[in-house]
Design a protein around this nucleic acid. Structure first.
Lengths: 110, 110
DNA sequence: GCATAATATGCGGATATCCGAATAAGTCAC
DNA sequence: GTGACTTATTCGGATATCCGCATATTATGC
């Protein structure tokens, strides 16, 4: 483990990474960023949520280094940092589809 | 979307899947199941947590169809359902490592 | 039947997440 | 400087998660 990481800490960090993905809005954001950078107002318009809420979600994605923010004037452009995140995203999406295809109902409850 | 799934529902289900991965103990469980099925008591011994707690985590993994439970007598063996879950797991682990390698400290805080 | 072993579930309190509203901070034009 | 615009942050209340404890459930052996 590179820089003095205990096993527990590493799993904790991994869990935090997953947690950052564990929200519909944040998944939507990642999906929007697939084709390139988008400004915050772009995302607000496309996703259709309050600006403050979206900004908070972008903040948690930023905290986990899943996205990068680049400032140009007064607008901030977000982009995906690592293509492997999208790959993982797609793998899980495939898993979900195969589960749904088998007719199993997933608990949407919560 | 196969069986009358709205876009929102699909993202919600995807988020639930991610949420099931978003806990150190559950990641540990998945890691333990890589090399084949394990009984609950196996996992309790290897991971070192209370049986009830582990059983609850296994329950959330089961709910999301990430693991399969097969009963043999009075012991229940858990195994991974889809190898793509482990692939996604590994991709995120790689992302985490590359982030850590760049010297960026991730917020472990919460 | 009863006792024991392996696993699962319900309950309750501590802690964390989520969202909206309001406000702050940064940038540009003038 | 002021004002307008874009994005970020703080606060508070509702809701969800996590864990330990106690208790069910299921299976086995006698």
């Amino acid at each position: 483990m590179s820089t003095q990481q205990s096993k527990e800490e590493f799993y904790q960090l991994h869990a935090h990474l997953c947690k950052a993905l564990a929200h519909p809005t944040r998944l939507l954001i990642i999906d929007e960023l697939r084709d390139g950078p988008r400004s915050v107002s772009d995302l607000v318009e496309r996703i259709g949520l309050r600006q403050s809420n979206l900004s908070q979600h972008l903040g948690t994605l930023r905290d986990q280094r899943l996205v990068i923010a680049r400032r140009d004037g007064q607008t901030v452009y977000y982009s995906l940092r690592d293509p492997r995140v999208t790959q993982a995203f797609d793998l899980l999406r495939q898993v979900l589809r195969s589960v749904l295809k088998e007719g199993e109902r997933l608990a949407v409850a919560n």
